[in-house]
Simulated scan of single mutants.
Amino acid sequence: MPNFAFKKLGDIPFLASLSQLQIAEITTSLSAISLQSSAVLLAGNSLDHTVFIVIEGVLCFHSADGRRSAPLECVGSIICRANIPAEVSVSMPLGGSALIFSGDMDKDTGFLDLMRRFAPRIPNLPFVFSDEDPPDLILLNRLLGTKQFDHGIDLGCGGGRLSQALLGRVGRMTMFDRNPVVLSEAKSTLKFAGNGKNIQLVSGDFHSLPFQKGSFDLVASRLAVHEAYSPRFILEQAFQVLQSNGVLAIVDVIPPSGVESVELFEKIEKTLDARFGGAETLPSWRDLMESVGFSDIEINCTRIRRTLEDRPGCAASRDQCLEVFSKASSIALKELAVVGLSENRNTVDVSWIDTRIVIIAKKSLYE
């Protein structure tokens, strides 16, 4: 075994608490291996009991739906199926070295049991979003063109999906949400993705923004304004904290055109989120923007297929949503392009089409 392998053992937190005799016993059951680029340590859903201690290189985690983490510094990390979710794969994109310990070798030392007992579990591993953003964020970035901003704010940031999409064009980002736990998780996700720098977390109610007038040159919000008791008031708040010549970027849902489909749309939204206060129509959005004082208003729409898994909390509302769909008329189901319902309308693979509005506007230089 190469000497550098032994030098790293004492750097592993729980191994540092063991005696030299115990470590000596453990090392007799370890092998050192060199790993080529893109080597897979653990394959998703495998029953492999091999344990790796990384001594050189970085890791990437891969989810079953194609998402991946940014490369992570990981010297001293313990990688085994006991502390990695079953569906997750682990690779070393640049290659490296690791100590390898097979469960078959665990006869005398009990090392594998120690690993499984003390290795940190990762129950909710945060993944980078897929390389291709959803249609609404693709459209938003296209409308923003080459614009760059000094300080942006993401109002009602939730899991941070909008912030993630905008970080490449914003020097500093303030993530604002009423839920401090959600804020912390969102920042962890961005940090995990290699985008945790220059982010400020602020918890509060977006009906009363705690910022001075003209604090930001970009105010953005995605799928949050419809939760407000007064969308106009939220736009007025945004107008106040936006600098002159600053940009407002809004993404939100709009209702379908048919009477029956509007009823189904509202029932589903309220089932998924009790805070849903109703969605503005396309014409009312323009009226609102103009009445608040925004100019150079550019409004576009796109469509996105939604499932009961695409937002936090959706799965918890699965049965209620399926009940709503089961009682909907055939006309409403057709207008929302609902698919995946079986003849008895009880399948969990249901999906439907949302129409989303993407708005870019400016605060006049002379305001």
Rank of each mutant, 00 (worst) to 15 (best):
G145K: 12
E343S: 02
M1N: 11
K362S: 14
E227K: 13
F211Y: 13
M175K: 07
D11F: 05
G156A: 10
H151G: 05
D106N: 12
S34F: 00
D273P: 09
G110I: 15
A165Q: 01
P231Y: 03
D150Y: 05
G110T: 10
V202A: 00
N300F: 08
V241Q: 09
H207D: 05
C74D: 08
Q212R: 11
Q243H: 13
D273C: 11
F233I: 13
P180W: 03
S17D: 05
D287V: 08
P123N: 14
R222T: 05
L125C: 07
S329W: 11
G214K: 08
H49L: 00
S102M: 03
E185G: 07
G246N: 01
A337D: 13
G44K: 05
A315V: 10
N245F: 06
L264Q: 08
I199T: 06
G159Q: 15
T307S: 15
R169C: 02
C321N: 15
S97Y: 02
G196N: 08
R305H: 05
G158T: 14
L282H: 09
S326L: 12
T347M: 00
S89N: 10
H207V: 10
S17M: 06
L35E: 06
G76R: 04
G110S: 12
D273V: 04
D136R: 09
S97Q: 11
V54A: 10
T146M: 08
L201W: 03
S330A: 11
F101I: 02
N344C: 08
D65N: 12
G103D: 01
V51S: 02
S291N: 11
G145F: 03
V90N: 02
D136V: 05
V88H: 09
L166T: 00
A70P: 00
A16P: 02
G258V: 12
Q212D: 07
L30P: 04
G168N: 11
P210D: 06
K270N: 14
S130F: 07
T355H: 14
Q36V: 02
V75H: 02
N195A: 12
V40G: 09
A64Y: 00
N179M: 05
E269Y: 06
D205S: 04
L218C: 03
T355C: 14
R68P: 10
A82W: 10
F211R: 07
C60R: 15
S326M: 13
K197A: 06
F239M: 11
L167H: 03
P120L: 02
S188Y: 05
T302D: 11
Q20F: 02
V54C: 12
D205M: 04
L341K: 04
Q200R: 09
A24N: 11
F101D: 00
M173D: 01
Q164W: 07
N3W: 06
V324W: 15
E269V: 00
F176C: 06
